[in-house]
Design a protein around this nucleic acid. Structure first.
Length: 445
RNA sequence: GCGAUCGUAGCUCAGUCGGUUAGAGCGCUGGUUUGUGGUACCAGAGGUCGCGGGUUCGAACCCCGUCGAUCGCCCCA
């Protein structure tokens, strides 16, 4: 027992409903991405360490203590990606993607951060990512937010989530605000928590979203960005807000929402929930006009967001594993051989899913067939082989009818119609197989 | 990195003041005249009580350490 291999701390193994929820989040993301014309981009899971170290900022926690960094066999320092944006920016520069003009990209996959695991926080976690590069209009911000909003709605979690919005202004606004903020916090340094006094040196903006009571009292009186916005920056933010209300995307202005890094400009946002404890941010992003330039490319306006797949999967409910369509229940080996070829014909003919239940006594076989959730059971024994027909049992109705091997297509037809009705929410109206078969068999003559 | 709580079968848990071969439910495997489930019954497999050390005649239970999980801080998706 003690010899059992253990998973690495902060990693997860998902099966069954957890895996189904995870996939549902990804499937939904990919579908909505197509609707918004965000095209797939595939980038490496690891990069030269400098890609992340320079883009995220040497002083951030992510870079200074949370990266999975190691030397490869040639002695180069490489790092498992802690997020997507830096890698996509690097690819944009490496490949000269500015030739494509506006690029709307979507990606998803694992990211790695050496953190203390907690609810909704893991060392290997998975993100959905959306980026717009070469996007220099306020309406691009609105479009990107609309994508995020639509995703949350299609996942059915929008009701538990609210959009917090802020602006960091352009570089001039931001620099003036930051200087005023720093001066203000220094005046009130003795009222700040130990953590925040630390932040004063490294990342003063972060004091704004501190959870400490005392800090919040100081923050309440702190200078706000609006007093420092240039006309351009204010105009930008007004157009974003105007676009959001036209798009009917509700948001809440949150003056304390910030981004620590210099290349962030203008729009910053987070979709948050209180259903996940301390890890309430479910989808977050902002405009990072300065990043591509800071990494050695041409000045490129850009905006993007990332969402935590595990966090979204924890909010999603009512997603279960898909049951199979048919359960094959053969009575003996000869029947199993024939049954398998019938099942394979159904699979290749009409996308029917199925499984064989050939172990244990008859009762056990039916029990397992039932547990599989199959709509129909195909029972084949000696007498069926002789008659060249299968017994088809409707598992929810309990009725059973004989179907000649040559009429197998009706099973595919029944299942297809059933799927359609279920999709339209009218699964209840589907007749039992025996009645449906009798009616359609007659009609086909 | 800091703090709190918790680790007993695959899962959820019980296990009295430290006292013989550590239990239940579910699940799993097989069976109940060798052909019928969603609601029967019988049997079986499966645990060095997270790991290591200590106290004791004796430890699942007490002590120390360690690993892991959970929740919070920090940080963030």
């Amino acid at each position: 027992m003690s010899k059992k291999p253990a998973a690495i701390r902060g990693t997860n193994d998902f099966v069954k409903d957890e895996a189904a929820r995870f996939d549902h989040v990804v499937d939904t993301f990919r579908r909505v991405a197509r609707q918004f014309n965000f095209r797939p981009v595939h980038i490496p899971v690891f990069e030269q360490t400098s890609v992340f170290a320079r883009s995220l900022g040497e002083t951030t926690d992510v870079v200074s203590k949370e990266m999975y960094t190691f030397e490869d066999r040639s002695g180069d320092s490489v790092t498992l990606r802690p997020e997507f944006t830096a890698g996509i920016a690097r690819a944009y520069i490496s490949n000269g993607w500015q030739q494509h003009g506006l690029m709307k990209l979507s990606a998803w996959g694992p990211c790695f951060r050496y953190e203390r695991p907690q609810k909704g926080r893991f060392r290997q976690f998975h993100q959905l990512d959306a980026e717009m590069l070469g996007a220099g209009e306020p309406m691009h911000d609105v479009e990107l937010l609309a994508f995020g909003q639509q995703l949350l709605e299609d996942l059915g979690v929008a009701g538990n989530v609210s959009l917090q919005l802020n602006t960091l202004g352009d570089p001039d606004s931001r620099a003036a605000w930051q200087a005023a903020l720093l001066a203000y916090f220094r005046r009130h340094e003795d009222a700040l928590s130990a953590d925040s006094r630390e932040r004063l040196e490294r990342n003063p903006l972060r004091i704004l979203d501190s959870k400490d009571e005392g800090d919040r009292r100081v923050v309440a009186e702190a200078p706000i960005i609006d007093e420092f916005l240039t006309d351009d920056a204010k105009g930008w933010f007004d157009r974003v807000q105007g676009g959001l209300s036209v798009a009917r995307i509700d948001f809440e202005r949150n003056m304390r929402l910030v981004r620590g890094l210099d290349y962030y400009r203008h729009t910053a946002f987070e979709f948050v929930t209180d259903a996940l404890g301390a890890q309430g941010t479910v989808l977050a992003g902002g405009r990072y006009d300065g990043l591509v330039e800071a990494m050695g490319g041409a000045p490129t306006p850009a905006i993007g967001w990332a969402a935590g797949i595990e966090r979204l999967a924890m909010l999603v409910d009512g997603v279960n594993e898909d049951p199979i369509d048919v359960a094959l229940v053969p009575m003996n080996e000869a029947a199993e051989h024939v049954g398998l070829s019938l099942l394979n014909a159904l699979r290749s003919g009409g996308g029917v899913s199925g499984e064989t239940f050939a172990r244990g006594n008859m009762k056990k076989r039916m029990q397992r067939a039932d547990a599989s959730g199959a709509a129909l059971a195909l029972v084949i024994g000696e007498s069926e082989l002789q008659k060249k027909a299968v017994q088809v049992k409707d598992m929810s109705e309990g009725d059973q009818t004989s179907v000649a091997f040559g009429d197998l297509g009706f099973i595919g037809g029944y299942l297809a119609e059933r799927r359609l009705r279920v999709m339209e929410g009218e699964g209840e109206s589907m007749p039992a197989f025996s009645a449906w078969f009798a009616a359609n068999k007659v009609r086909s003559k």
